[in-house]
């Protein structure tokens, strides 16, 4: 049995879902798109290209309040609100699958896990590759791990479910049963490509390549590439107190390996003093170290880092130069 939903019913279904869930979906922000907690479902735009920040802004928020303290009393903020991510693209869904690998690994991140398990993911297959994205090269155009998948088939979205949560979500009058599979397979539409064949081996040989110095000279060290990256998860922790100095909260905020003091330790030594070393670290972590540990590249080809880099550092170009293409 298959299902579909009329496009005009999207607003109605979201209105219904908002009674039980926080609904997070893409909306327009000037000329770009952002994920936002929805107050007005009419604002949702499902045929968007990409958002400025990825869904991690809700799963790994910055700041995240880890504890609140009042003299000796410590409390951990409770948040049991269920969230539906409505309309996330396959690349971002695959990025969440990669984040899962890290956050559920040896050092379990309870803050992430709690949110993850209270979340439902309604993916929408992407119809608007922009000039920066290259998900097809990374294999992350194929949606995996979703609860519900919507595919644009004209006046309707074709509906598939990937979990029990998803099944429960589509069992209502807004979704029509259909007899045959009406899904239209997505055509490849990324203009940008990256050849990832053997790139773990190639990167290992290029550790001392002169390209890293060149990139270090160009990089502004602004960290934008990592903040907009759907799989960058590094953070730092700080305590915020009120004027009594006895009451406050511990927050974690996004950090970036591109920033000067990321690898600075007590006593002032910096393990990655040069900008070139920091640019290299990010690329190596994405494309090599993560691969060595989890057998996947940590890059899903969403293209956000390319778009956001003020000086045009482009991972696809860097990899192609390294390969000697």
């Amino acid at each position: 049995m298959f299902r579909k939903i009329k496009k005009e019913n999207i607003v109605k279904i979201v209105e219904k879902l908002m009674k039980d869930y926080d609904v997070v979906a893409p909306v327009r922000n000037e000329k770009r798109f952002v994920f936002e907690k929805i107050k007005n479902p009419e604002k949702i735009v499902l045929d968007y290209d990409s958002t400025i920040l990825p869904p991690k802004k809700f799963l790994l928020p910055s700041p995240e309040i880890m504890i609140r303290f009042d003299n000796d009393k410590i409390t951990i903020p409770e948040n049991n609100k269920k969230t539906i991510f409505f309309g996330i693209h396959p690349c971002d869904m695959n990025a969440i699958n990669l984040l899962d690998k890290v956050e559920y690994d040896e050092y379990k991140d309870d803050y992430y896990i709690k949110k993850r398990e209270n979340s439902v993911f309604v993916c929408v297959d992407c119809t608007k590759a922009n000039e920066y994205c290259f998900c097809e090269s990374m294999g992350s155009d194929k949606p995996e791990g979703y609860d519900v998948l919507l595919t644009d088939i004209g006046d309707y979205y074709f509906v598939e479910t990937g979990s029990r949560k998803g099944e429960e979500l589509v069992e209502n009058g807004f979704f029509e049963n259909v007899d045959k599979n009406e899904k239209i397979e997505r055509k490849k539409n990324c203009k940008r490509k990256m050849n990832i064949e053997n790139f773990d081996k190639i990167l290992k040989q290029k550790f001392d390549d002169k390209i890293w110095e060149q990139l270090g000279d160009k990089c502004l060290g602004c960290g934008s590439c990592s903040f907009v990256c759907p799989t960058c998860y590094c953070y730092s922790v700080k305590d915020i107190v009120d004027l009594s100095l006895k009451k406050g909260e511990r927050r974690r905020v996004w950090d970036s390996c591109l920033l000067v003091d990321f690898a600075k330790v007590a006593g002032g030594h910096n393990f990655r003093e040069k900008r070139s070393a920091r640019v290299k670290q990010r690329m190596y972590h994405k494309e090599l170290y993560f691969f060595e540990k989890y057998n996947y590249s940590a890059c899903v080809g969403c293209g956000r880092c390319i778009r956001e880099c003020p000086v045009g550092i482009d991972v696809t170009d860097v990899i192609s130069k390294i390969r000697g293409d």
């Binding site: 922000n29 770009r32 060290g221 960290g223 920033l259």
Partner: peptide
């Protein structure tokens, strides 16, 4: 020791 971009990006400014 980090630039304005860090604060700006977190606010999702265009």
């Amino acid at each position: 020791s980090y630039p304005i971009c860090v604060e700006c990006k977190l606010r999702e400014n265009d």
